Amino acid sequence: MSKNSVNLEDVLDNARQTVKTDSYPMSIGELASMYEAGEIILRPEYQRYFRWSSEQKSKLIESILIGLPLPSVFVAQDEKGNWEVVDGMQRLSTIFDFMGIVDDETKRNAYYTAFETLSDDLYYIEEFTGKGWADFGRRIQLDFRRTKIQLTILLRETDLDAKFELFQRLNSGGTSISGQELRNAIIAGKNPEALKWFESLAQYEPFVKVCGMSDRDLSVRMDVELVLRFIVFLSDEIQSLPKAKSVDVFLTKALRNILSDDSFDYAGHEVTFKKTFDAILAAWGENALRYKSSPGTGKFSISFFEAVALGVAQNIEKLPSKKVLKEKIDSVGSNRAFRTASGSGKNAQRRIPELVKLGAKYFKI
């Protein structure tokens, strides 16, 4: 059948069958009770909530208090019947935090900042500045708890991947989410233990010291993305990168392959990862992968990471002495091939394989 003769109605009907939804309003009080009972799941892996300012949070509470309608919240039903928030985590987290019921897991997150009182950026009710939940009388609290929020529920029959596709599409307003934040959510949904593993490597002290990433990099989970890049770019998967639509798409597909591979060698990859950053830290020191005019200058450089860290990793069983390794790291930036591959305007899908290949040759004894 030719492309032009495809029955569009059949295509659309089949696509609609992959998404099963229900929709109805629920009060904030009902949602709060479900959250306290563990029936609503807010995954800190998404990280979006933690980038809301106190002013943004206060304006949301003000909107509820004066009766402005709130955007819909989308949740996905898991195998146990619980609701995992797909879009609306910022809103629900802010509400639950203000009400004083946010759970301990959220509070333990490194990016969490308590939200207990309203800021001075209120427009309609300035008199509420500095007030917290306990300052509200019974009537105000009841009105707040009875406020309705429209929910759309992705039923458990919906394909898991469709959940995250919806999340990405809905994320058009507010603070945008990074590709790795979305991938963290994918890992959390499919294999929570794998997420803990990625997180543990991202917190490995020599790795943290060598990369010297900014708070902004960390807030969008660039650290976890680097762990994934380290693993994937050292595998045969990199051969398909030049034909990928983007690095983000490539990494997401590679991650799914890892999560579906029961024989994936987590222990072996962890050994290589730790040996690599142990070696770089011992030879060069902290901030070795910050690069502008020379190692240790400017901000963290993804191109320098690809050439140095992956180059060292490919030669991890036979590295030069610390002195020679430091000299090699110092001189990578002056290498013509590095400058060509990492130059501005270079397509990332082509740059990365070139730098990985360069690193393998450059750090070989």
Rank of each mutant, 00 (worst) to 15 (best):
L234W: 02
R108V: 00
V332E: 13
A76C: 08
E270S: 15
N184V: 02
L226I: 04
F338M: 05
L251A: 06
R43Y: 03
E306R: 05
I149E: 06
G173T: 13
Q17W: 04
I231Q: 00
T158M: 11
L12R: 12
P295K: 08
Y204G: 08
E354T: 13
L151D: 10
A348E: 10
G173P: 02
V249F: 06
L65M: 12
L281M: 10
G345F: 05
E55I: 09
V227P: 03
T252L: 01
G298D: 09
E354A: 15
D236M: 01
F136R: 03
L201P: 06
A37M: 12
P25D: 14
N257L: 05
A309D: 05
D13E: 15
M213E: 04
A114V: 14
K274I: 06
P192Q: 11
S72A: 14
L60I: 03
C211R: 02
S214N: 11
D215M: 07
D278P: 13
I95M: 14
N14Y: 10
V271L: 14
F164S: 06
A288N: 02
V232N: 00
V249P: 00
L142F: 04
I153L: 15
R156N: 14
R48W: 02
A37R: 14
R229D: 04
I329L: 10
L68D: 01
L228R: 07
L122W: 09
E205N: 09
P242Q: 07
I125R: 15
S293I: 09
L234S: 11
N14H: 13
K346I: 12
R169S: 11
S200F: 01
L281P: 00
D78V: 07
A134Q: 12
M1N: 08
S2C: 00
F230V: 02
L31Y: 03
S331V: 01
S235N: 07
Q349C: 14
P242I: 04
T106L: 10
R351I: 02
G268N: 13
S263E: 15
E205A: 09
T147N: 14
Q56P: 00
K131T: 03
F207N: 03
E9Y: 13
I140T: 14
A76D: 06
K274F: 05
L154Q: 08
G130W: 07
A267S: 12
M99F: 06
R145N: 14
N109K: 04
F230Q: 03
K299H: 09
L251G: 01
N315H: 04
R351Y: 02
E105M: 05
S172L: 09
L42I: 15
K323M: 06
L92G: 05
G88D: 13
F128H: 08
I329G: 08
G132H: 08
Q77P: 10
E327K: 15
G343H: 11
N109F: 06
K57I: 01
V102C: 03
Q349M: 09
L70K: 05
E205T: 12
K107G: 05
E199D: 13
A337W: 03
E127T: 11
V208T: 10
A282Y: 01
S263G: 02
T117S: 12
Q56C: 01
A114P: 11
K209P: 00
D278Y: 03
F300G: 04
E105D: 10
E84P: 00
L166W: 01
S23H: 14
A194C: 10
Y112Q: 04
A202C: 11
F264M: 11
R51N: 03
S5P: 00
L155G: 03
L228P: 00
S33I: 08
K275M: 12
H269L: 05
